[in-house]
Simulated assay, not measured.
Amino acid sequence: MNKIFEFLIYLVLVTGVAYGLHYFVLKINDQDHWWIGTDYSLASLYIFGSISSLIMILFLYGAEYAMPKQLGFVFLGAMLLKSVASYIFIHSGLDLLENNFIELNFLGVFFLYLFFDVYIAFRLLNTEGRHVEK
């Protein structure tokens, strides 16, 4: 259970730091006004990303306990489902603005949490003391 709290702390830290930097960059470059008139905001992108990564953490942790030999395949399946959910979330914002503002911000957030999920899966797959028979 210690690992799950460690991963949650990492998730909160990554979300806080990345959101702060992203917000600061948009504010400095005077690009934050593009959110007006859309159903999206920078906060909504980060909330969606953090909740989906939280679900991934819980799902992968449960899969490591239930079927550790299949954890890699479970990760790939869960990433497929997360990608589909992400497309459903951002679908109404695609091609909404001519400068692809929403798409580019969403991709940045999506890849941030994708790398985070890969790190979590890597940590779970490479746990010391885990002996998986080949």
Rank of each mutant, 00 (worst) to 15 (best):
Y40I: 07
Q31L: 14
K3E: 11
V25R: 09
Y119A: 13
N99M: 02
E98T: 09
V118S: 04
G49Q: 03
N126V: 10
L26M: 07
F106Y: 14
G49L: 04
E98R: 09
Y10H: 04
G49I: 04
L76D: 01
I102G: 05
H33K: 13
L124Q: 01
I120C: 04
N2P: 10
T38A: 07
E98Y: 10
D30S: 10
K27F: 14
T127S: 12
L11D: 02
L76G: 00
S86M: 05
S92V: 15
S52V: 09
L26A: 07
Y46C: 03
Y119V: 07
V132C: 10
M56L: 06
L71K: 03
D32Y: 11
F116N: 01
K134Q: 14
D95N: 15
P68K: 05
D32M: 10
A85S: 15
G72N: 06
L112H: 02
Y23R: 14
S83N: 08
N105P: 05
V84I: 15
T127P: 08
Q70S: 08
Y46N: 01
I51L: 15
N100D: 12
F116K: 02
Y61N: 03
F101Y: 07
F111V: 13
L125N: 12
F75V: 04
F89P: 04
S86G: 13
